[in-house]
Amino acid sequence: MRNYLLPALASALVLAGVTAQAQDKQTLAIVVKGLDNPFFEQINLGCQEWMANNADSEYECLYTGPASSADEAGEVQIVDDLLTRGVAAIAISPSNAPAMANRIRQISPSIPVMTIDADFLEEDRDLRATYLGTDNYLMGVKMAEEAMKLKPEGGTVCLQLGNVAADNINARAQGFRDTASGEEGIDRLTGQNGWTEIDGCPLFTNDQADLANQQMADTFTANPDLDAFILVGGWAQFAPQAYAQVTDQVMDRLESKDLIIVAGDTLPPQTQAFRDGRSHVQVGQRPFEMGLRAPDVMIQLINGETVEDPLYTGLDVCNEEDPGFCEEP
């Protein structure tokens, strides 16, 4: 069992870090959904790279978040504590978009607030200056386009999502459904263009890799004729050993493309899964770029400069015809 920090302790550590930094430099805070997710560690590496490149800056980049991606309340508390103690600007990846927006509206901070990786819901976007990250609807479109190339007649499909209230994940699901169906605003695929979502799906992982793999295994067992499994985020692949065991169950079907897997993100364990034939397509985001660019965007906002909204960081698609980013390093 993982030994997660209690939310109160995590907040205390965050505040201690802010206090220490405030003695010399102003803090640019990046708050992610959970420190247990390797995707967000790439944002941290971008933040650290920015600091290495800007050692003489009056600002310092602080990367933080709750210990667990499932701790939505903990993320809200950390943001609350940072704003109370004082930071120069803040970039938030909200796990629960309505809850985070509600707290920001209550606090009404005087400093620049932006979102990174995941946005607020459309009705709450007046609360932030800009969004920096993936065009998540387009990411879902790309996933659907790749699935349709592999299964031109459609088929049965299961979408695996993250947190129920995560705006970025829901946007990807909408992009997938709209593109696969050829219609806009589809809540569920029920035969449009040959695509049908099976009973029990979509699945919600709460950003937990172990749960994601268990869901996959259960789905493959209960639906031996499933045509497509779509990992809208890469959670299951973040635990490569477990993911290998799950896909071992269906390797014959994956090799024949009787069953296809399309997955989000292109972290090293995921590109290895692609090379091993354990997925057919990876649609990758650019989290390192998000972390690298966020401090500069926050400084622009502090200085009152006009900043474009949204700021998209692009996508990398790996498939059989063009492995591209997923080729052997």
Rank of each mutant, 00 (worst) to 15 (best):
D187T: 14
Q174V: 01
G162Y: 02
T115D: 00
K151H: 08
F229D: 02
I116F: 12
N213R: 04
D218S: 11
D227T: 14
T179D: 09
F229I: 04
N163F: 06
G194I: 10
S110D: 15
G233K: 02
L132G: 07
N193S: 15
E183D: 09
L127E: 13
L226I: 10
L231N: 09
V141D: 03
R172Q: 11
E146Q: 06
S108G: 02
Q192D: 00
P224K: 11
C158W: 07
L150P: 01
Q214I: 12
A244L: 10
L211K: 12
A166V: 12
Q160G: 00
R125A: 12
I111M: 13
M148F: 05
G200D: 10
D227N: 15
G234N: 10
M216N: 00
N223S: 10
D126V: 05
P240F: 02
N213L: 06
L231A: 11
L203V: 10
D135R: 02
D218Q: 09
V157D: 05
A239E: 15
T196C: 07
I169W: 06
D117C: 01
A242N: 06
P109K: 12
D210S: 13
N223H: 15
L127I: 07
L231F: 12
N170Y: 00
A118W: 07
G185D: 07
Q192I: 00
M114Q: 00
G175Y: 03
Q214R: 11
G191Q: 09
N168D: 11
N213D: 08
F220H: 08
Q208P: 05
L127W: 04
N193G: 13
L132D: 12
D135Q: 04
E153N: 15
D135L: 01
D178N: 09
D218R: 07
D167W: 01
P109C: 14
R125T: 06
A147D: 03
T221P: 03
G155N: 07
A244Q: 13
T221C: 00
A244C: 04
N223E: 10
K142E: 12
R125H: 10
E197L: 05
V157P: 02
T219S: 13
I111H: 12
T130P: 09
F204T: 10
A222F: 05
T179Y: 01
A209N: 09
E122Y: 01
C201W: 04
N213E: 11
T179M: 02
T179A: 06
L189A: 12
N170D: 09
C158K: 02
S110Q: 14
A166N: 13
A236L: 04
L189I: 04
G191A: 08
T134F: 10
M114P: 01
R172H: 04
L203C: 08
R177Q: 15
F120D: 00
L132T: 05
A171F: 03
A144N: 14
T130E: 04
Y131K: 13
G185R: 07
C158A: 11
I169D: 07
L127N: 03
Q214L: 11
E153C: 14
L231H: 04
F120P: 04
F229Q: 01
W235N: 15
E184G: 13
Q160R: 01
T205D: 07
T196S: 11
I186L: 14
T115V: 00
Q214E: 15
G133H: 14
M216E: 03
T205W: 03
N193I: 15
